[in-house]
């Protein structure tokens, strides 16, 4: 079942079109990466999903219910972490969590325990300080705790890792992994290594349009050019192999570095087969033949070409 369905969303600010016919859906139980450059329209999309912005046309459904601008009913299914979260600075973390719990309308047999558990998960359980004295990392951690207070079906994070140091990032990603068991996570980012670390599905947004969507491995498989490399025993072998491959139209961008020959191709499986045939014909035994796994970065760059 789709937890989030977005269809034909359009939005512009003045003459500038920010979202142009954006459609995608997020299935239950996945971590969904929403990727795009700064200014691609990620935050705008999220704000529309949260009912904070009005869309010009199109429809958004959360957990099967249509989102209506200015009406916050669907937000009971949602937890939200903005990129730079700001909280009431005169409250302590516990007081803030209590406020969040009360305004969300959620009831637990033991609300205090729920707050303690969430604060413990993000490592703020014994902070008696007011939020005005918090560091950025502490605020981000509180942000996750407060977003999860209503046990949301859908957790939306806007660039959750971009303001954090490497340790903070690692902590946050591992929290998202934990959350995934109960909650579907959508997070927007431009940090592609984070996507590879936690995402199951991704959609790539560019200039207000969804340019590609699918599971991470699917997108990599769909990549038009695939990289390969052959490691030979000697430099002379490498020269010969390079020479032979260069005559085959299947291969492009061939380069040689020491005894390694590398290049691109459009047909991954066919390319490896041809390389093996050529090696057999030349009677050369390679150390290693490899299809190089494409990175998210290549997927992304190709998608926004």
């Amino acid at each position: 079942m789709a937890v989030l369905e977005i269809s034909q969303l359009k939005k512009s600010f003045g003459k500038q079109t920010v979202l142009d016919d954006v459609s995608f859906s997020v299935e239950k139980g996945s971590v969904f990466g929403f990727i795009g450059k700064n200014g691609a329209g990620k935050t705008t999309t999220m704000n529309i999903v949260l009912g904070l912005l009005r869309a010009e046309s199109g429809e958004v459904k959360v957990n099967g219910e249509t989102v209506i601008y200015g009406d916050t009913k669907t937000n009971r299914f949602v937890g939200y972490l903005p990129d730079v979260p700001e909280f009431y600075s005169f409250l302590t973390a516990r007081e803030y969590m209590q406020l969040s719990l009360d305004v969300s309308g959620t009831t637990y047999p033991n609300g205090d325990q729920k707050i303690t558990d969430l604060l413990a998960m993000v490592g703020l359980e014994d902070s008696k300080k007011r939020i005005s004295n918090y560091s950025r990392g502490m605020k981000q951690r509180l942000g996750i705790a407060q977003a999860l207070i209503n046990d949301p079906v859908l957790l939306i994070c806007d660039e959750p890792t971009s303001a954090l140091d490497p340790i903070g990032r690692k902590q946050l990603l591992s929290v998202l992994e934990k959350v995934k068991e109960k909650t579907t996570v959508v997070f927007s980012t431009h940090i592609l290594s984070d996507v590879e670390a936690v995402c199951d599905e991704v959609a790539i947004l560019d200039k207000g349009k969804i340019v590609t969507q699918g599971s991470v491995s699917e997108l990599k498989g769909r990549l038009s050019s695939k990289r390969w490399s052959v490691t030979l025993e000697t430099l002379a072998d490498a020269e010969k192999v390079k020479e032979a491959l260069a005559h085959n139209p299947l291969f492009s961008n061939i380069s040689q570095k020491d005894s390694i020959v590398e290049g691109e191709t459009t047909e991954g499986r066919q390319a490896i087969r041809s390389i093996m045939e050529i090696l057999t014909r030349l009677a050369i035994v390679p150390e290693k033949i490899e299809r190089i796994e494409p990175t998210m970065e290549e997927v992304f760059l190709e998608a926004i070409k």
Binding site: L50, P82, V103
Partner: peptide, 16 residues
């Protein structure tokens, strides 16, 4: 400061 965002996105009605 954008502090209302958290309240609204938690489902607190504007009227409240």
């Amino acid at each position: 400061k954008g502090t209302l965002v958290h309240m609204v996105t938690k489902g607190l009605p504007r009227l409240s």
